[in-house]
Structure formats: structure tokens, C-alpha cells
Amino acid sequence: MSDRLEVLKTYKTYVGGKFPRSESNRIYRIENPGGKHIANACRCTRKDVRDAVVVARSAFDGWSGRSAYNRGQILYRIAEMLEGRKDQFVNELELLGAKKKNAQKEIEISIDRLIYYAGWTDKISQVFGTVNPVASSHFNFSMPEPTGVVGIIGPDESPLLSIVSLVAPVIACGNSCIILASTENPLSAVSFGEVLHASDVPAGVVNILTGNRDEMVNHLTTHMDVNAIFNAINDSETKKQLDENASISVKRVKHYSQSDWSEEKHENPYLILDFMETKTTWHPVGA
């Protein structure tokens, strides 16, 4: 150890391709299991949630309009950037009390998972789209399209891997999203924002908020301009509340609480389809 005084990081949020603090200027303490202060995290508010939704909505058109090839390249780029910052994430997880070996494993799976989903972007409509042999003289085909703005509610476990597992399928097909990071473990999510920022992900496609999740979750899930909810919290009261909130504007809800985020089953195209709509186009056939 040198005598040099370490530079600590100010953890902020990631919204619209920028790193703003909460508009409220509120923070809360993040400590390691031994009670040592590690950092201050932003305690976001209803207004932060609403600002993030506006930003996500305006990013949706551009992102869903990108070619599937381009989205795949960008997802692959996120993996590349994460690979280069492995040590940073391992250190961060260790600071919060994780074992080095587990931390390393979490990063590696996260990187590989991003690559898995990068490969789906230009295959999902080939595998799940159809040409439909209608009986009348029409040409008719069905293609999956992104649902829109997705609210993601992150769990407390595997703070990096869980966020990657939730975000990758959602953005692979062209949705934009707002993530409510774990209240206890928000730091990896914020750092992941820095990776996204360096990966050509357009501003506003992924927005990450920290704070007291219970304060924000109702504002996010009752927002009329959110189309779908991807929830990883396993609490029956919360789930019921989310379902009820969703019914206000017929949001799609996917509950996906998991005990082990490292399992391979989290890599599958059906998680992408959960955030897609099928559009069917008809055209007459004639001379």
C-alpha cells in the first residue's frame, strides 16, 4: 500500500445518457456488512422517475428504429467494455463484502450473457415471425416488435448479473427502459451505467435510478407512458400491488424473481418475447 490518498467515487444516477444526481439532492448511506461507509447513493423521487420515463420514451423511436444488426453490435460492445473493466467491478463487489471468486464469476457470466443476447437481435424475428397462409388472396405476415418503455425492478441478489440479465433481453429487441436498482446494493448498477455510456448505447435507452425502491415503485408502475413491467422482487404483496398498478393502463407484467442468477436458463429468447408485440400486416395479392 502506498501512502497516496485514494480518490472515492461519487455515485449518481444514469438518465438520458448523463449522470445527474437526484433532483431532491437526497442521499443515503451504503455500508459494507461490517458497517463501514462505502459510498453515498442518490435517493431518487417521483420526479426523477417521471423525468426518466420521458427520456426513455423519447429514446424509444430511435432505438427501435436501429437495424437489428446495429443493436447486436452495440450489445456486443457493452460486453467488450465490461470485459475491460472486470477488475473495477470485482473490487466494487468485494468492497461490499463479496468473495473475490464469486465476484469474478458474476462478472464473467454477465459478459457472456450480454453476448448471448447480442446474437438474438437479428434472429428473433426469423425464429418467431411467421408468414400466414390466409385463405383469401392476401399476403399476410406477423413480426415481433418491441413493446415500448419497460420498467425494470431489480432484486437485491447478484447486483450486477441480475441487472444485466434483466436489461439485455429488454433492450435487445428495441425497448427502452428505466431500472430501479436494489436499495441495498445499487452501486454495481450505477457503475454498469458507466459501461453502457461507453458502449454506443444511445442516450435514454437505459436509465438507472437508485434510492428507496418502495418510494419509487408505485410511481413507475402507475405511469401511463410505461408499457411493461419486468419485476424481480419476490414479495407477494409487492407483486400484487404491481399487478394492480399495471391494470390502470393494461401494462404487460413479467414477474421474474430468481434465487440463482448464474443459471443458464436465464438465457432464452422467450424472455425477449415477453417484451415484444406481434404485428400482423395484410396486403391484397392481385395484378
Partner: peptide, 27 residues
């Protein structure tokens, strides 16, 4: 943003053709 797009036709239905809505038109 709609589940069915009829181009140069309208109100055509077929059992092989998926039907359903975006947004508040259904799930």
C-alpha cells in the same frame, strides 16, 4: 403502433392470422 395493419384492405380475418392489440387494446 397496432397489432394489425391492413394495407389497401380492411377488416380481413383468418384463423392463420394472429390478432390482438398493443397498449390499452389488450395483451
Amino acid at each position: 403502433r397496432s397489432g394489425v395493419m391492413w394495407s389497401n384492405t380492411y377488416n380481413k380475418f383468418d384463423p392463420t392470422s394472429p390478432f390482438g392489440g398493443y397498449k390499452e387494446s389488450g395483451i
